[in-house]
């Protein structure tokens, strides 16, 4: 057990190292740098040259990378070139928004996904099956920015229920969470449906039916409980991907989240900020996968027994 955890941690470190190296290499290859972007329309060859020296961008890339790794090991993620603030400060300001959005979105995804999935499974191959599966898939079938804009227009502008953008309080998360959550609902619905269909065909359901329990009770008591395992695993995976930021939703609703931070960092060639945000989200995704695996092991009696 300890050995496998150790192996896992080691693998994670390798992945983080590679991700970090990848960013460095990629940002070397893309044309443009932070200084060019900072200078904008204004240009001045001397200034560009002076700043390149000043920011150590003239050093060979392995020197820059080594000094970056050294800094990380001492907990120093550097300062953003463009926002002139420590990367850790920027991420810790943006992350709570991302968490709120992810949690709300996950809740919505689960509600839509499971309700649709259950109904579809019970009415397998019927009209309701197609209808509810279609509905759950709708959110992922239209570009998310269209869903977001339609919600803004209908709920924010026509109905006046919530603000159109920004997050003055928790209500500001409702619309972006619907846009984002609906987007993830389809896969949960599909998984719920297929596992439930399979479980419903198994023998013990017949046994339960034979015992005289009503159909609804059978569902609730047995099938659902047994079908939940893969769904829960998937939820853990989804939460971790939601936590790594949703650029488009964050942009439309003007939410200061991790995704927007990362995209801005690429656009402005802000190496420290991009390194920081990507490493951060990578850790989140890896931890999320780890939790999903653990959940699977803990919840599935067959695996627990070592089968």
């Amino acid at each position: 057990m300890l050995k496998s955890i150790g192996k896992r941690v080691l693998q994670t470190l390798v992945v983080l190292f590679c991700v970090s190296l990848l960013i460095f290499i990629l940002l070397r290859i893309i044309p443009g740098d932070a200084i060019t972007t900072m200078m904008g329309e204004h240009a001045n060859a001397e200034t560009i040259e002076r700043l390149t020296k000043e920011m150590n961008l003239d050093k060979p890339f392995y020197v820059q990378f080594a000094s970056y790794l050294r800094d990380i090991c001492t907990g120093n993620f550097g300062s953003s070139y463009t926002l002139n603030k420590p990367v850790t400060e920027l991420i810790s300001a943006a992350f709570p928004n991302t968490v709120m959005l992810a949690v709300f979105a996950a809740l919505i995804a689960w509600v839509i996904g499971m309700v649709c999935g259950i109904i579809a499974a019970v009415r397998k191959d019927g009209i309701l099956d197609r209808l509810f599966m279609g509905f759950s898939l709708l959110g992922v079938s239209i570009p998310v920015f269209m869903v977001a804009m339609l919600l803004q227009y209908l709920v924010g502008y026509r109905l006046h229920w919530v603000d159109i953008s920004g997050v003055k309080n928790w209500t500001g998360f409702i619309l972006p969470a619907i846009a984002l959550g609906w987007n993830s609902a389809g896969s949960i619905a599909r998984l719920t449906r297929s596992t439930l269909v399979e479980v419903l065909q198994e023998d013990y359901i017949d046994t339960a039916k034979a015992k005289g329990l009503g159909q609804g009770a059978v569902l609730l008591l047995h099938a659902l409980r047994n079908a939940m395992l893969p769904v829960i695993t998937m939820m853990a995976l989804q939460i971790s991907s939601l936590l790594s930021g949703a650029v488009i939703t964050e942009t439309i609703f003007s939410i200061n989240g991790v995704g927007r931070l990362a995209v801005d960092a690429i656009t402005s060639r802000d190496i420290p900020l991009l390194q920081g945000t990507v490493l951060f989200t990578t850790v989140i995704v890896i931890v999320g996968n780890l939790i999903a695996d653990c959940l699977y092991t803990v919840l599935d009696p067959r695996i627990r027994k070592g089968a």
Partner: peptide, 18 residues
């Protein structure tokens, strides 16, 4: 000064009195 990156959102916000 609100930072609103999306122009369509700005448009709707103005029409909504925000």
């Amino acid at each position: 000064m609100h930072i609103i990156p999306d122009a369509s959102t700005q448009n709707l916000m103005f029409q909504n009195g925000e």
